[in-house]
Simulated assay, not measured.
Amino acid sequence: MSRTTTLGYSPCPNDTYIFHALATGLVQWPGELHVTLVDVEELNGKASRGELDVVKVSVAAAADILDEYVLLRAGGAMGFGVGPILVAGKECALADLDGATVAIPGRKTTANLLFGLACREAGISVKLKEMVFDEIMQAVEAGEVAAGVLIHEGRFTYQEQGLFRVLDLGAWWEEHTGQPIPLGAIAIKRALGEDTARAMNEAIRASLTIARDNPTIGAGYIKEHAQEMDDDVIKTHIKTFVTDYSMDVGEGGMAAVKRLLSEAGCTRNDIFIAL
């Protein structure tokens, strides 16, 4: 494991909170660790092209990369009450959006998969407009799109922009399945081998443990990369998206991932590393 390992995750507070200790050397990793921080949909694209050894991906996007990658049990985003939110510039129901243009944070995101499932159940069809996640609220507010699917900090701040919640897609999933919503996961190349995969899983767990034991240690790193600079929003973001599932997805979490991936057309069973 002395080679350079490429690692990619998003600049969002939950990811920088989890990975700070590993990225800055507080958790040792054999060889050089080269870190890339970009938007989740860009990470999904890099994973689809096999550009990174270890990469945070939307769970929905994992359906297309599992021939080359396997998922770790640590480092992901999953839980109850943490899902994406569909918002509009005026109060309306999902059915009212039939034929409308709706902004999404990428076609391969879990958010878009959930939105598509909800639209299918409601019997409506919409036009999708892909946008960077932090531009969606402004587009809805300006009337460029009828509605938008918000992820990350947007779920905490949309009301400040005068927007209205149409549907909590995470709550919709929970009501239909009784399972936590799997938003993101960490994928590692199968070619690196099982020992390296388990070592990376433990390194991520160690990094998260340091963050939990020392809540202020990565504050500067987190704020440096956050799209939303308000301290309270950053704290709420971390509390919401970093859960016990981030330490270990567990049997229930793995079942939820498999359920979601089945909705994306994936039938593989060897989705997670074996511990």
Rank of each mutant, 00 (worst) to 15 (best):
A264R: 07
A95T: 10
C266D: 11
L114S: 00
L97W: 03
S125I: 12
L33K: 02
I186H: 08
H176G: 10
M137E: 11
L33S: 03
I136C: 11
E32L: 14
A264M: 14
P30E: 10
L33G: 00
L208W: 01
T240D: 15
L275H: 14
Y9A: 08
W29R: 09
G31N: 07
L128P: 05
I124N: 07
Y221A: 06
F164W: 08
T216K: 13
L97P: 00
A95W: 11
A111T: 00
E251L: 10
G148D: 00
L52K: 03
E194P: 11
N44F: 06
D134E: 12
P105C: 12
H20P: 00
L114A: 04
S207L: 10
R190S: 10
T36I: 11
C119S: 11
E68K: 10
D98I: 03
L86M: 09
L260N: 04
R49K: 15
I204F: 05
Q159D: 12
H34Y: 12
A264I: 01
E175H: 05
F19I: 08
P11W: 01
G250M: 10
L37H: 02
L208F: 03
M229R: 15
K46S: 11
D67T: 04
E153K: 06
V40T: 07
K189A: 09
L94E: 05
Y69Q: 01
L150D: 03
G265P: 08
V166M: 12
V35Y: 08
T243G: 09
D53I: 05
D195S: 15
E32N: 12
A139Y: 04
D39F: 07
T16R: 01
I238L: 07
A100H: 08
D96N: 11
W173S: 00
V70C: 11
T243E: 03
H152V: 03
A47F: 04
A171Y: 00
F80K: 05
S125G: 14
M131A: 13
N14G: 10
D230N: 13
A147P: 02
G184E: 11
H152A: 15
L43F: 09
G106M: 06
D232M: 13
S125K: 14
P11E: 00
A62Y: 03
P215F: 06
R49P: 02
E160W: 02
A226P: 02
G265S: 07
H20C: 14
L150M: 06
G170N: 01
A211E: 04
M254F: 08
D232H: 11
V35E: 01
G25C: 08
I136D: 01
E42Q: 15
L260S: 01
L169C: 05
A60Y: 05
P180W: 00
V126R: 04
V249W: 02
M131V: 03
S48D: 10
G184W: 06
G253P: 04
V40R: 04
N214F: 13
H237E: 04
L72K: 03
D64N: 12
M229K: 15
L52E: 00
Y9Q: 08
T267D: 13
E130T: 12
G75E: 05
M254H: 01
Q159W: 06
R205S: 02
E175C: 06
L43V: 01
D213L: 12
A103G: 09
N214K: 14
A191M: 14
Y9G: 00
L261P: 06
R3H: 14
L72F: 01
A63H: 08
L66D: 04
I210Y: 07
I222Y: 04
E224H: 09
